[in-house]
């Protein structure tokens, strides 16, 4: 087809009058493709939808998916780490059978906090609400794994000589607890999936590592040469 002004080919009525050169296939002008202006409209409309869906998926969806909760007590790791003798192990210790105690229970705290030692409002709240009535603090666990997962702290910390920070980040130097973002569907912390909703890129230095199965497998592959059998981490 000869190249003509697109504006002219749009109007079928005008075509016979203003055709500058004889047109071989005159009837086909009826089936000519849409004009560039309507093509741009379609493209723009598509892009608005495309960008809109990306934004809602990456920004709005995480906002909806995760609820934000505060820990029952605003715990200051930095203060405690300065005062204890055996670093993390002072409170998060191994039992004699090799199992890991995880978050300390109230009896460990009471050793020092039978009465408030400072006039810090968080400490006073802790003593009044939990120590005096003898109620365990319902800490929100950022690293809680599903029931089917077996994780051995002794294999990693003692066996492989890994530091706590290598998975949990610089939690020991924090002065305030982080906001606990709970997945409304599963009940697990956002830390498990990782902060990046697309799971691209690496977490910044000092941030906890994501703890999905693929994250475990990736490290195992790098460190031991294979991902390991299912039973290594499942129960």
């Amino acid at each position: 087809m000869s190249s003509t002004d697109p504006n002219q080919t749009v109007s079928t009525e005008a075509a016979p009058e203003t055709a500058p050169t004889p047109v071989d296939h005159e009837p086909e002008t009826n089936d000519s493709p849409p004009s560039k202006s309507s093509g741009w409209a379609v493209f723009l409309f598509f892009m608005i939808g495309f960008v809109g869906s990306i934004l809602s998926g990456w920004i709005l969806f995480p906002e909806l998916l995760y609820s934000k909760k505060d820990q029952p007590i605003d715990f200051n790791h930095a203060v405690h780490l300065d005062m204890v003798s055996d670093e993390c192990n002072s409170c998060h210790y191994f039992r004699d059978d090799g199992s890991f105690a995880g978050m300390p229970d109230l009896s460990s705290c009471v050793d020092c906090h039978e009465e408030a030692q400072t006039d810090d409002p968080e400490e006073i709240k802790f003593v009044d609400e939990y120590v005096t009535p003898g109620i365990e603090v319902p800490w929100l666990n950022h690293s809680k794994q599903p029931d089917c997962v077996f994780f051995s702290h002794s294999a990693h910390v003692i066996g492989a000589d890994m530091s706590c920070e290598s998975c949990h980040g610089d939690i020991g130097t924090s002065e305030h607890t982080r906001v606990f973002e709970e997945n409304r569907l599963t009940g697990y912390s956002r830390d498990i999936w990782g902060h990046s909703i697309s799971r691209l890129g690496k977490p910044e230095a000092g941030e906890p590592l994501p703890m999905k199965m693929n994250d475990c497998a990736k490290c195992h592959k790098e460190e031991t040469g294979h991902k390991g059998a299912c039973f290594q981490c499942h129960k």
């Binding site: 191994f94 004699d96 059978d97 090799g98 199992s99 029931d147 089917c148 077996f150 051995s152 002794s154 294999a155 003692i158 066996g159 039973f231 129960k235």
Partner: peptide
């Protein structure tokens, strides 16, 4: 030992969790 849900197959594991716990102690 994680309990099983409807619709899955289960079988003896030679008490594998006991092996895991024994390994924990050995590491310790």
């Amino acid at each position: 030992v994680s309990p099983r849900m409807r619709g899955v197959v289960e079988k003896c594991s030679f008490c594998f969790h006991r092996y895991q716990l024994a390994r924990d102690k050995a590491y310790y």
